[in-house]
Design a protein around this nucleic acid. Sequence first.
DNA 1: ATGAAAGCGCTAACAC
DNA 2: GTGTTAGCGCTTTCAT
Lengths: 329, 329
Amino acid sequence: MLSDKNVKLEDVAKLAGVSKTTVSRVLNHRGYLSQKTIDKVHEAIDNLNYRPNQIARQLHERKTNLVGLVFPTMNDPFFSQLETKLDSQLYKLGYKTLLGNSQNDPDREQNYLQQLLNHQIDGLIVGSHNKGLTEYNNLNLPIISIERHIADHIPVVASDNYLGGKLATQQLIDDGCKHIIHTNYPELIASTNQLRQNAYVDVMHKNNLPVTIYHIDFDSSLEDKISIIHQLFIEHPEVDGIFADNDTNANLIMQTAKKLGYKIPEDLKIVGFDGSKMVQMFLPELTTIQQSIDQMAEVAVELLEQRIEGNTEVKSVTLPVKLIKGSTA
Amino acid sequence: MLSDKNVKLEDVAKLAGVSKTTVSRVLNHRGYLSQKTIDKVHEAIDNLNYRPNQIARQLHERKTNLVGLVFPTMNDPFFSQLETKLDSQLYKLGYKTLLGNSQNDPDREQNYLQQLLNHQIDGLIVGSHNKGLTEYNNLNLPIISIERHIADHIPVVASDNYLGGKLATQQLIDDGCKHIIHTNYPELIASTNQLRQNAYVDVMHKNNLPVTIYHIDFDSSLEDKISIIHQLFIEHPEVDGIFADNDTNANLIMQTAKKLGYKIPEDLKIVGFDGSKMVQMFLPELTTIQQSIDQMAEVAVELLEQRIEGNTEVKSVTLPVKLIKGSTA
DNA sequence: ATGAAAGCGCTAACAC
DNA sequence: GTGTTAGCGCTTTCAT
């Protein structure tokens, strides 16, 4: 089989004995064409194993059918499920996915952003956790954000995090816990994660229970996370309930607690957050707040499509959460 | 801040009072330029918030700096770690990643392939499990395959799967197991997974032990997988050791076994395969054969780079595996 | 040290 | 029905 490199529309035209325009028309099913011409052109295309050059097309049409995805990492149950679904939904609309995993490094995120823009992407879906990347404000590009407020004009697709936090905390209280600790991000970044914490604080206050929060950075090493969790148990041996802001931390907390001799759920009850398929598979016993991850991806792509189509009235969307009852709380 | 859309090199040239050529030279640090001109141009670029159009550049240079990734899914511990590392390594070399998760659907894989090619990618890294996609044979494009034989001229990066299968089976035998069952893919597809099975069979024969293999399709639903595993226990209640061809199945087997009353490792010993970071985190007790996943990604990108640079002598590479001793075997 | 003009591969007015 | 021609935005000879 011959290579298709360097075979261009002009070559097809020559071989078929027609003009470039005609070939282009056949390719794009446009205008009137005699069947004879169509056949001739197709024959030439097959003979030469011709494949149209998208780059040239894109240059002309100013549309690349490329959508950028900027997330901290793929190697995480939540993000891998989200990105998988995003990719799959984008595919249905004819878009290809250009990856940009920032590892939550602001320099890298900025760099990715620049590069994606240079690639003339048609749209962007972001879910990175970086603080204060002002770049996004100045972009005249359809953007949808997931679980993070970026700028006023950028629609956000997010779970009902406050409700989630409420459900989680209430579950622990209903279980009879008196010393409930919450783990969350280290700072008030622009993430909607903060609402989980707000709900925890509100519910605790309403029940006259003491509020204790530990900060676990999403990006720190496994060792650092575990060390903070250890500290938590040393400083608060009385803890009898923990609401973790994500399932990965809930898992680490469970493992650490077991090592320290806590029985779950007898001595210590745990509620996580996310409810990804992967964690459900590996840790079905975990009681957790399940986000509609697949739906988030679906909605995000829908909204992006609307923005790309020119709709400037695209609104943010909040999606439901539900408590999945396992055996840890 | 003004939008950068539509701002082109020509606009910069006009504002700076120079020619397009000069601006291009400043941009690419080429040729002789007076400092004064350089400054003027930079000023104009900043003022207009100009960003060069990669598409136009690419059209001229016939290089897109895009690498396609074709894998079955990202929502899997092994693949998400692999793709994360691939993306990160490609990034270091200045390549962007174009995603193509085929869900192991041949139509979809073929379609992705076409589309990626149309996007004029510079190279391709594949790890999909589809049988007999002949498309790859005809491509005049640098390709590296991971854990799968595609065509004779395409280099493969793979683990030492035979050794892995040997280590796993031997461990179970050393543990005193007499009825060891192996789970693997349903057919002799072009996957290197088959070598794990071959090793199992060889070691079992050498020890005069009966060979029993169950087939679990990577792509079937969770329910179907679990149902096959149930069947395994019904048909072989005497089983005292299982070598699963991947950790995800090992996990399902463990969960099913526990539900059926087996104590692990007392009644039943289990060895998995893969050893991804995610499974290590969620299931640290699992004894498994660890592949050098990150290294696979590193090597694959290195080989691809060589192929892109024009080296046609690129050889396949086999990477080491090691047994990670948990408490399940 | 800088500019004019051709060309990368394709599409789309505008002819005929 | 089909062809001619002028771009899309950038790089790069070849002049000067």
